[in-house]
Design a protein around this nucleic acid. Sequence first.
DNA 1: TTAACATATGAACAGATATACATATGTTCA
DNA 2: TGAACATATGTATATCTGTTCATATGTTAA
Lengths: 99, 99
Amino acid sequence: MNDKQLPDIELLFELADLFKVFGDSTRLRIMVLISDSELSVSDIAEALKMEQSTISHQLRVLRQNKLVRVRRDGKQMYYALDDDHVKKIIEMGMDHILE
Amino acid sequence: MNDKQLPDIELLFELADLFKVFGDSTRLRIMVLISDSELSVSDIAEALKMEQSTISHQLRVLRQNKLVRVRRDGKQMYYALDDDHVKKIIEMGMDHILE
DNA sequence: TTAACATATGAACAGATATACATATGTTCA
DNA sequence: TGAACATATGTATATCTGTTCATATGTTAA
């Protein structure tokens, strides 16, 4: 008997979409940047030397996938990683690369 | 003092490339398919109801990223997941999706 | 060697996506 | 209220990528 179930196709499509989010270096750099402490959009843009709108667009993708959480403080929006889950996924990937 | 080092940019580009590989549903389905037992190219093509050449192209991507290993047996090539690392990455992603 | 089969590869095309520019929305403070 | 600032969003575009068709490469068995 085989009681191991293959994930159904729908779920695998969702999973692919999730990994797509990790599959862009700008988004990865953002995630690593805010993994320890929250940062504002302009902080991130400055750190990565990229346009504010570019960062904002990518943060939206991260938000939509529940990978970050946001907090408003006055005019600024502070972003941080949503949970340690995300960190673990990144670490697993690193482990693979580093053999 | 902060002895936690940020991964350098080069490494993050590599990491993004790795996640890109996971970010396609066809490749994910292949990986899940061969996670328990090795299968030939035509087995996979049949299971996914896709062209042989499509599968072959994607298997090459998986090979290049050292995510699968191959074994020739006569005319057939048998593919299997390279290590449990890969399974773990997929499982972590699943966990995130399933909240 | 040749036919039949399994897999790999090259080229072309369609669809997806990251970025930049311009501008809108939202917030503070005078 | 209005000016200044921070962020979000719409649009356009250049680049990337997955799939297919056609064909090449490699293997077996006669």
